[in-house]
C-alpha cells in the first residue's frame, strides 16, 4: 500500500503546484494585470474600470492574502466569478463538464474497441496485407488535425449526404435519439485519430513483446496460440497502451475544445473560447485548473492500474 500512498501524495503536491502556478500566472505579466486585461489595441483603459477590476479580482489586496483567498477558494470548489457577467465559474464548469466527458468517454471506448484488436492482428503478421493497409489508414488518420477532420465530416455527412445533423446539442433526457444522433459525428471525429494512436502503440508494443523469451517459454509448454497471445503477450503489451491512452485522454480534454467548436457541442469549449476572446481571466483559469486536475487524476489512475497489473511496480 506504501506505493499507493506515495503516489497519491505526489499527485496532491502536483495539483497544489499547478493551482499555485495558475494563480500566479497573472502576476508574471509585466505591469498592472488589471490594466493589461482591459487593454484594447493601442488605447489605454479607463482608470475607473481598472480600479473596479482590481477590486473585483482582489488585486488590490496583498499578494499572500490574494493567494490564500484564491487557493482556499479553489479547494472549496469556488473558482471565482466571471469578469463579464459575474456568474459563478464553478457552476458553469459543472454544468458543461459532463457533456465534454461524455464526448471523451464515447470516443475513448470506440477507439479502444477499434485500436487494440487491429493492433494485435497487425502485430501477428507485421508484413501481411492487413497490417500494411492498417498502417496506411492509421498514418493518414493521425495526419488530419481534428478540426479539419470534423469540418470535412460535417461537409460530407451533413451538407452533401444529409444523413446526420451538422451539430448542436439536445439533452439526453429530452430526446435520447436525437442526443445520440448529435453525438455520432463529434465522437467519431475524436475516435478516428485516437484509434490510430491506440492501434500504433498496441502494434509496436506487441511487436516488442512477441519475441521475448517468456513467450517462447509459454509456447514450449504447449500453451495454445490464442492463449499465448492474450494471456502472455497482450497482458504485458497493454501497459504502454494504457499509459499512452491516458496521456492522450488528458490531451483530448483540450483537443475536444476544437471539436466542440466545430460541432457547437456546448461543453467546456464554449465558455473557454468566449472567455479567451473576452479576456475573462477567471473563466480561463477556472477551466484550466479543472482540466489539469482531471489530467493529474488520470495519471494517478494509470499508475494504480499499473500497480495492479505489474507486480514489479508495487514495492
Amino acid at each position: 500500500m506504501g506505493w499507493f500512498v506515495r503516489r497519491l501524495a505526489q499527485s496532491l503536491v502536483m495539483l497544489w503546484v499547478v493551482v499555485s502556478l495558475v494563480f500566479l500566472s497573472i502576476h508574471f505579466v509585466p505591469g498592472d494585470p488589471a490594466e493589461l486585461l482591459l487593454a484594447q489595441d493601442g488605447g489605454s483603459p479607463d482608470p475607473l474600470m481598472v480600479q473596479m477590476l482590481r477590486e473585483q479580482l482582489g488585486l488590490d489586496r496583498p499578494l499572500p492574502e490574494q493567494y490564500s483567498h484564491n487557493v482556499m477558494g479553489i479547494l472549496r470548489g469556488d473558482l471565482g466569478a466571471s469578469m463579464v457577467d459575474g456568474s459563478s465559474v464553478g457552476q458553469e464548469v459543472m454544468r458543461r463538464l459532463p457533456r465534454t466527458l461524455e464526448l471523451i468517454a464515447a470516443a475513448g471506448i470506440l477507439s479502444l474497441l477499434i485500436g487494440i484488436p487491429a493492433g494485435v492482428l497487425s502485430a501477428l503478421r507485421p508484413r501481411g496485407r492487413f497490417s500494411r493497409g492498417a498502417a496506411v489508414v492509421a498514418g493518414t488518420a493521425q495526419s488530419v488535425p481534428v478540426f479539419v477532420l470534423g469540418t470535412l465530416l460535417v461537409v460530407l455527412f451533413a451538407q452533401v449526404l444529409g444523413w446526420l445533423p451538422a451539430g448542436g446539442f439536445v439533452p439526453f433526457s429530452r430526446d435520447p435519439g436525437k442526443h445520440l444522433q448529435l453525438l455520432v459525428l463529434p465522437a467519431a471525429t475524436i475516435a478516428i485519430g485516437l484509434s490510430a494512436i491506440v492501434f500504433r502503440i498496441t502494434r509496436a508494443s506487441m511487436l516488442d513483446v512477441l519475441p521475448l523469451d517468456f513467450i517462447r517459454t509459454a509456447r514450449a509448454k504447449g500453451v495454445p496460440a490464442r492463449r499465448v497471445i492474450i494471456r502472455h503477450a497482450l497482458r504485458n503489451a497493454l501497459m504502454p497502451v494504457i499509459t499512452v491512452f491516458a496521456l492522450q485522454l488528458g490531451g483530448l480534454l483540450a483537443g475536444t475544445v476544437l471539436v466542440e467548436t466545430v460541432f457547437n457541442w456546448p461543453g467546456l469549449s464554449g465558455m473557454l473560447v468566449a472567455g479567451v476572446n473576452a479576456r475573462d481571466y477567471p473563466v480561463v483559469t477556472g477551466v484550466l485548473v479543472v482540466v489539469s486536475a482531471f489530467y493529474i487524476g488520470l495519471n494517478l489512475l494509470v499508475d494504480i492500474i499499473y500497480g495492479i497489473t505489474d507486480p514489479r511496480v508495487r514495492k
Partner: peptide, 24 residues
C-alpha cells in the same frame, strides 16, 4: 505440436531472468 510441447517434450532455456512471464 501444442499437444506434444510441454507434455511429451519439454524445453528449458538459457536466460532465467527473461524466460518467465513477469506479470504471472
Amino acid at each position: 505440436m501444442e499437444r506434444i510441447r510441454g507434455d511429451r517434450i519439454s524445453m528449458i532455456f538459457q536466460e532465467p531472468m527473461t524466460s518467465l512471464n513477469p506479470v504471472m
